[in-house]
Simulated assay, not measured.
Amino acid sequence: MSRIAPSRILLSIWAIIVFVWIVAPIIVVTIVSFTSAGSFVFPPPGWSFQWYENFFENAKWYNAFLNSLQTACIVMVVATVLGTVAALGLHRSKSRRLAAGIQSVILLPTVVPAVVAGIGMYSMFLQWRISGTVLGFVLAHVVLVLPFVVISVTSSLQSLDRSLEQAAASCGAPPVTTFMLVTLRIILPGVATGALLAFLGSFNETLVSIFLASPFQTTLPVQMYSSVARDSDPTIAAASALASGVTVALFLAVVAVRITRSKKNAV
């Protein structure tokens, strides 16, 4: 009977600790969102859906949630398309120095502090008169999440065999057909992961959105941030649980796609 190495046992224990450390706050907030009390009490003295009813009946909360969903969906599509095209262009560039320079510019939002980016975008969008609009949120969020799409797709392109594209072209397939039927199918996991990161990055973005929000156009994270200082009821717990639910659902969807694709490739 083989013995398990102590290092693997310690690694498993550490993984469980990290998992609990990350998931425990989400579980606590979700439980509190079903409380019957009028304040944050854990464990709840009773169970009720009143805070979810308040969330959907309150125009500020509901509109902020819809704005976040709308903005995140648009950002996901735009960023995925632009990021995929950019990754392909950088991967196939003949000038490595030029590609490295362009990639550095694209990845710049990952190193610039969010407060600095928010102030800059606010000043620029104010002149363009798009601050506090859906267009302003979309442009700002696309800039912020585009690096994640580029990184994800570039990683998938490393496993791309160019001979498959050449074979399709030799059979008479035009470039668009070759991309859709050959290239895209190979890099699809990276594209799907990039799309997921783009959606979640936009849906959960707070700091830059605070600078761009207006009394008439805001997002769910900004509404939650404002509610912390103004309100004391567990409606914010319901909002947090819904946001976490959207995140987990999308994550599981991408995992399911990857598992299905792996099974098809194995067959």
Rank of each mutant, 00 (worst) to 15 (best):
S2N: 13
L90G: 09
V142H: 04
F199L: 12
F40M: 10
S36H: 06
A173H: 04
A24D: 03
S163E: 13
I4M: 13
L107V: 09
M1F: 13
I16E: 06
T84F: 05
P113Y: 08
V81Q: 02
V208R: 08
A86L: 14
L10T: 08
S232Y: 14
S12K: 04
M124Y: 15
I187R: 09
L107F: 03
Q103F: 10
D161L: 07
A195V: 07
G101A: 07
A5E: 12
S155C: 05
A253G: 08
F34T: 01
T219K: 04
Q50W: 04
S7K: 08
P234Q: 05
A79K: 04
I187C: 09
V257T: 04
F199S: 01
S93F: 07
G46F: 14
V77P: 02
I106R: 00
Y225C: 00
V41N: 01
A213L: 04
T206N: 09
L82G: 06
L207H: 03
W51R: 01
I210L: 14
V254Q: 11
Q217I: 06
A117S: 15
V18D: 10
F49E: 02
V248L: 15
L69T: 01
L139E: 08
A253C: 06
W47D: 05
L11V: 01
R129I: 05
T235P: 00
V116E: 11
M121K: 12
L139C: 12
A100S: 15
A79R: 04
L200N: 04
V134H: 12
S36E: 08
F49L: 13
Y122C: 11
G89I: 09
L252F: 14
A5N: 12
I17N: 00
L184I: 03
V143S: 12
Q158F: 10
T30N: 07
Y52C: 01
V153L: 09
V28C: 01
T178S: 15
R185T: 11
A198L: 04
A229P: 00
S12G: 13
T235S: 08
Q158Y: 13
M121C: 11
A249D: 00
R96Y: 10
A72C: 05
A238P: 01
R129F: 14
T154H: 04
I31S: 03
A100D: 10
H141I: 05
S95R: 12
G194Q: 06
I74Q: 11
P43V: 03
F148C: 02
F251A: 14
A117K: 15
F211E: 05
T154A: 14
I106A: 09
V222I: 03
F55C: 00
N67T: 06
L181M: 13
P45I: 05
V32P: 00
I31K: 01
L200E: 02
P174F: 09
A59N: 11
V255M: 12
S2T: 10
Q166K: 11
V257Y: 14
V116Q: 06
L98H: 03
A243V: 11
L10Q: 07
A249M: 10
A5I: 04
A249E: 00
P43K: 02
Q127I: 14
N54T: 03
N58W: 06
A169V: 07
A167E: 00
G201S: 07
G190Y: 07
A168D: 00
F179I: 05
